[in-house]
Design a protein around this nucleic acid. Structure first.
Lengths: 219, 219
DNA sequence: GTCTATAGATGGATAGAC
DNA sequence: GTCTATCCATCTATAGAC
């Protein structure tokens, strides 16, 4: 059909970008569902419907592709959290209460994970990256705490009566609550509760998390 | 030195058991530190100082070895938790308060993880198994909720005023707090807090976790 | 630029010597 | 039973044809 020799440059660029995006999305999806080590370049290119060499051509290597997905998604997630934190500050003369700080942290991944959101898979990817990531990714997570520091600072401003140590630990507990929201854990809870828990109701889950975490902070 | 031809059967059995235990411990250690997919049978046998074929001879396959470690450690951990829950019940006419129920769940992995405990590595193995485990292991985790059900029942008895749904969700949040106690997360928190947090103080950490979780439950 | 064919490396498993 | 040597599958990455 499309003879490459008579394609104009714009079509070429477009086709190239489309191929790269297809690889990116297929990789994110497969990694999120099956884990990094369990997905091969062959799986990715087959899922994307492109040739085997595409991963190396467009991204350099499998690990580089992985890292690029990780960087983009965490960047997007943290930017959205920072925006919500900023908005909460604007509503309260720069000193938002604990509940609104926590909401800025909790809400983005919950909204992304809602069943009708196409970012649903990205959340699972990010959570998986925390425990299964390469050394590169874990180094980023370990060293790039500037984003978290903004939340810690806001919490300390909201609760100046608490020792800093206490704030850091309670923030740690809140992070645990967030990171435990994996498909597998929801399934297990669903099974344990005999079907009572409905994680698809994002607003209700956010409220539950905030009630729990705020109580722990205020105590 | 020891000619196998003149060894008596008892020595043989002993040597065999020692080899098997060496493989078991080396595998648990390497899996906990580096992840399942990143450790090869060659790594394990080299670490244990035994020959390459030992894994298949004593355990059948790499996956079977993995599964056996998982089964033994989760069994030990859950048995200890059940014992503490039983003791808490004995102290309170069968209806222990929320804090003591949670303590029975939180304490065992924390005590195991204390720096001077040789079970320290087992806790990391178990936590890693939750997210990186094979399908076999995840199936066990998903279906074997009888142990968790005892804790859910105890919590519902302690707080009969709460809807069951609420109890399950709050238990889920508590599980998240526990599962987030990985080396990597402690390191990150240590980095974020400028060295303020000291996870080695197990009793203090247990108290912090109980304060936070109890407040979330009582609210 | 795209894709096929293959190099090069590694891993799990096992046959066979002792 | 133990261990070495080796098989065979699978993977990433790349060279080279088109």
């Amino acid at each position: 059909m499309n003879d490459p020799l008579i394609q104009d440059p714009a079509d070429n660029e477009e086709a190239q970008a489309a191929t790269k995006a297809a690889v990116f999305n297929a990789a994110e999806r497969l990694f999120a569902l099956h884990g990094f080590q369990n997905v091969s370049v062959r799986d990715i290119t087959a899922e994307a419907g492109v040739n085997l060499a595409s991963v190396n051509y467009h991204f350099g290597s499998k690990d580089a592709l992985l890292f690029e997905i990780f960087r983009r998604r965490t960047s997007e997630l943290n930017r959205e959290r920072a925006r919500l934190l900023h908005e909460a500050g604007a509503r309260h003369d720069g000193k938002p209460p604990v509940r609104e700080i926590l909401a800025a942290y909790f809400a983005p991944p919950l909204r992304w994970a809602s069943p009708d959101n196409d970012r649903r898979i990205s959340v699972q990817f990010i959570i998986r990256a925390r425990s299964e990531g390469t050394e590169d990714m874990r180094e980023v997570l370990r060293n790039d705490v500037s984003h978290l520091a903004r939340f810690a600072d806001a919490l300390m401003a909201a609760r100046p009566d608490l020792a800093k140590e206490d704030v850091y630990w309670r923030l740690h507990f809140c992070l645990g609550m967030v990171h435990n929201n994996r498909f597998a854990e929801f399934d297990r809870l669903h099974h344990l509760s005999g079907g009572l828990t409905r994680e698809a109701d994002v607003d209700a889950l956010l409220k539950r998390m905030l009630d729990f975490a705020e109580a722990g902070f205020v105590a």
